[in-house]
Amino acid sequence: MISLQRRQLVGHDILLARHGNHICSMRVDRGSGRVIALLDDGSVDSAPNLISPDLHLPETLRSVLREDRKFFGIVSAVTVVVGGLFFATCAGMAASMAGNPEMAELLLAYSYAY
């Protein structure tokens, strides 16, 4: 089961354990998979963001949408096409019944039956 929760950054915990209150700011370098901290003495330290490269982290909503973008696009396009066909069919049927007085009388009779 996919748990759609925000991933906790291991690098933050490692840097907090190393330096505590001496951290001025932290940022995530997603390209290298590291968290980088600026310390109050002006130095910079970094820590890996993963415990193990083989560790499978839980999926997030953003990662699910990114991986399944093509699928969701196809489903959306098919839904729009089917909805358009349904609307066109209903509009065509209504237009074909508009000039027929027997159909109007039949529809009025059924509306008062309930």
Rank of each mutant, 00 (worst) to 15 (best):
P58F: 09
L108T: 11
S32H: 15
R7G: 00
V35I: 03
D54G: 13
L108K: 13
F71L: 04
D13Y: 11
A113N: 13
L85M: 13
D68E: 11
L55N: 14
V10Q: 08
P48N: 09
T79S: 15
S25K: 15
L106C: 10
V64P: 04
Y114M: 06
Y110P: 01
F72E: 02
L61K: 10
L107T: 11
D54Q: 15
L108R: 15
A95K: 10
M1Q: 07
P101R: 08
Q8M: 02
S43V: 01
N49G: 04
E59D: 14
E105M: 14
S111M: 10
D41V: 01
M93A: 13
D40C: 11
L55S: 04
H22D: 14
I23E: 07
G99T: 09
L4Q: 06
S52Q: 07
V28H: 08
A104I: 03
S96T: 05
R7N: 05
V75G: 08
R69D: 03
G11D: 00
H19G: 07
F71H: 12
G73V: 02
E102W: 14
F87Q: 06
E59M: 10
L50Y: 14
K70S: 14
V35T: 09
T79L: 08
I14R: 13
V35P: 00
D13V: 00
F86E: 04
R30M: 03
L39N: 10
R66I: 00
L108C: 09
E105Q: 14
A88W: 12
G92T: 05
E105N: 15
V28C: 03
Y114Q: 04
A94M: 08
V64A: 09
S63T: 03
R6I: 00
A94N: 09
E105K: 14
Q8W: 11
V81F: 11
S3D: 15
A109S: 15
E67I: 02
H12P: 06
G11I: 01
D29M: 07
G33W: 01
D40Q: 10
A88T: 06
H19Q: 05
V80R: 08
C90Q: 11
I36W: 07
Y112P: 07
T60V: 01
D13F: 13
P48A: 05
G33P: 01
G73A: 09
G83L: 12
A113G: 12
T89R: 14
L55R: 07
P48G: 14
Q5K: 13
P58W: 02
D68L: 09
T60I: 05
V10A: 12
M103E: 09
N49A: 09
D41L: 05
R27P: 00
L9C: 02
V81D: 11
L38K: 13
